[in-house]
C-alpha cells in the first residue's frame, strides 16, 4: 500500500475473491477493500486454483457454485497443492447439501451474500485466525443435521453435539454475535469460539450417515 499509517501495526489480510459474477465481485470488493487487501479475483474453478496458488492469500472468499466444478473442487485442489490458506464460503445458495459439501471439503465457515460489509470483514478476520464462522443459516443446518432423534450414533464424540455446543448453535441461529453469546452464557469469547470450532470439526469429520442423508433430502432452508 502507498500509505502506511504507523497506527496500523498488523498487516492487512490478503484475500482472494472467487465468484463467477463480476457484479458480485465488484460489490463485495467495494464493501471490504478498505479493511482487507484483495490480491486476486477469479471467476471459475481453474482460475481460482491458479490465482490461489500464485498469490497464497490468507483467506479465500469462495462462491459455492462455480463454472467448471463447485466450491469443494477448489478447496480440494488447493489443499492437494499444499497451499496453506483458509476458505470462507460466501453464497446466495440456500441448498443445504451444497453448504454442507463445501464445509466438509474444508471451508471454515459459511455466510450468505446478504451479510453486511463490517460483518464480512469480521468473518474474514475470524477465519484467518483459524476460527469457525457460522451464519444463522449454517447454525440452523447444524442443529437440524445433528438433531438427537436419530438412531444411536456410531461415534458419540463426533456424531452428537454437547449441550453447550447446542446452546451456542441455537444462539447463533437466533442471530447472536459471538460476544453477545459470551455475555449471555457468561463465558469468554474464546470459549464460544472453541465451541464453534468443535462443531465445525464434527461437521467435517462426522461419518454420521444421517448428515449426508439429511443434507440430500433437505434442499431448502
Amino acid at each position: 500500500m502507498e500509505t502506511d499509517p504507523p497506527s496500523e501495526s498488523p498487516p492487512m489480510l490478503r484475500v482472494v475473491l472467487v465468484d463467477d459474477h463480476a457484479l458480485v465481485r465488484a460489490g463485495v470488493r467495494s464493501e471490504i477493500e478498505h479493511d482487507v487487501e484483495i490480491v486476486g479475483v477469479a471467476g471459475s474453478v481453474a482460475e481460482a486454483i491458479a490465482v490461489v496458488r500464485e498469490t497464497r492469500p490468507d483467506v479465500v472468499l469462495l462462491d459455492v457454485h462455480l463454472p467448471g466444478g463447485n466450491g469443494p473442487a477448489v478447496i480440494e485442489a488447493v489443499t492437494e497443492a499444499g497451499v496453506d490458506t483458509r476458505f470462507l464460503a460466501l453464497s446466495v445458495s440456500d441448498a443445504a447439501e451444497d453448504v454442507i459439501a463445501v464445509i466438509r471439503a474444508g471451508a471454515r465457515g459459511y455466510v450468505t451474500k446478504a451479510i453486511s460489509g463490517p460483518d464480512l470483514v469480521d468473518a474474514v478476520r475470524r477465519v484467518a485466525e483459524g476460527d469457525a464462522v457460522f451464519s444463522p443459516r449454517l447454525a440452523g443446518y447444524v442443529l437440524d443435521a445433528f438433531s438427537v432423534d436419530g438412531p444411536e450414533p456410531d461415534n458419540p464424540e463426533l456424531d452428537l453435539l454437547t449441550a453447550r455446543e447446542q446452546e451456542v448453535m441455537r444462539l447463533l441461529a437466533r442471530g447472536y454475535a459471538y460476544k453477545e453469546i459470551a455475555r449471555r452464557l457468561e463465558i469468554s469469547i474464546k470459549t464460544v469460539e472453541s465451541h464453534a470450532s468443535a462443531v465445525l470439526r464434527k461437521l467435517q469429520l462426522s461419518s454420521r450417515n444421517e448428515l449426508s442423508h439429511w443434507a440430500a433430502n433437505h434442499r431448502l432452508l
Binding site: 443459516r137 440452523g140 442443529l143 437440524d144 441461529a173
Partner: peptide, 22 residues
C-alpha cells in the same frame, strides 16, 4: 412463516433472516 416474513419485509423495508429447524 416465509409468507409472513416476505410480507413484513416488503411492508417495512427491513431484511429478515429466518432459520427453521425441525
Amino acid at each position: 412463516l416465509s409468507e409472513i416474513v416476505d410480507e413484513v419485509e416488503e411492508m417495512h423495508g427491513v431484511a429478515i433472516e429466518s432459520v427453521v429447524v425441525g
